[in-house]
Amino acid sequence: MRFHKTLLASAAILCAAMPFSANAGTSDKRIALSNNYAGNSWRQAMLTSWDKVTGAAVEAGTVAAADAFTTAENQVTEQAAQIQNLILQGYDAIVLNAASPEGLNGAVKEACDAGITVVSFDGIVTEPCAWRIAVDFHEMGRSQIEYLAGRLSDGGNLLEIRGLAGVFVDDEISAGIHDGVEEHSQFKIAGSVHGDWAQDVAQKAVAGILPSLPDIEAVVTQGGDGYGAAQAFAATDREMPIIVMGNRHDELTWWKEQKDANGYETMSVSIAPGVSTLAFWVAQQILDGKDVPKDLTVPFLRIDQDNLEENLENTEAGGVANVEYSQEDALEVIDAAM
């Protein structure tokens, strides 16, 4: 994974880059994080990453302040009021995880009109004056098939575990998987179930469909469902297929056990909550006067056979594998979009 570095390495690169990276231009700038929700482990990890990385940046004098604000309730009107308050408080940039892609456009426009840089990530906004750091869910689905094509040159039957029906993310990932299968015609999706991104639901759904399926070579997933699928397969006398994981702690733990026991090989892909720090550095670069395209794409956090242990160690029990981004990573993402 090109973006994945250990914290130590990124810190080292950051220090090395410091003398010639143009941070003089932003040393008096203040950046605010406007966040709409903090009620799950992903968001908590996102806020912790923000504090860790921006705290260091403030100490190093790269920016003057980087304060995080979370609305008390996940409501559009409240976040709009929060953004207006941030405008009044005179922040130079607002990094935004939005409650609604459209509902905040009025407030975002007001921020832009006040000369404030607005960078939205994860929950992006459609207002043209804002920057967007979006997740390419389609590619996340497609990359799984790509990986499988490398592993299984003969192809075979796939079982697809989808997410929550009717949610845009589920449609995107699934569309990516189906496009990948079209590209690599040796694969065939033999069955498809909804696992709702939850291990227990996935286990029940897979156990239910398994008796009706032919031999399954691999399971493509959306994250949060790999462990449940593995449990369902383990309960039968079928051979364990390649199950693509989603960076959750239980998934990585199970993978590690299998790897140690019988050399089980797979990969794991998801979005790191540390994407908030990527948005922070992008905002800093924009404030620094760098020409940044309005639409950027979040790199995935991919875990492979050789960096499994290291990632598992850094993942909290019950949490998601995380990575904090550096200024260098942000530059790389910006250059990739140019």
């Binding site: 309730e73 459209e102 509902g103 456009n105």
Partner: peptide, 17 residues
């Protein structure tokens, strides 16, 4: 008035009201 401010709507936009 709310839509005039937010420029777009959402089925849950004013539940707090």
């Amino acid at each position: 008035a709310l839509v005039g401010l937010t420029t777009s709507a959402d089925a849950n936009i004013a539940l707090r009201y």
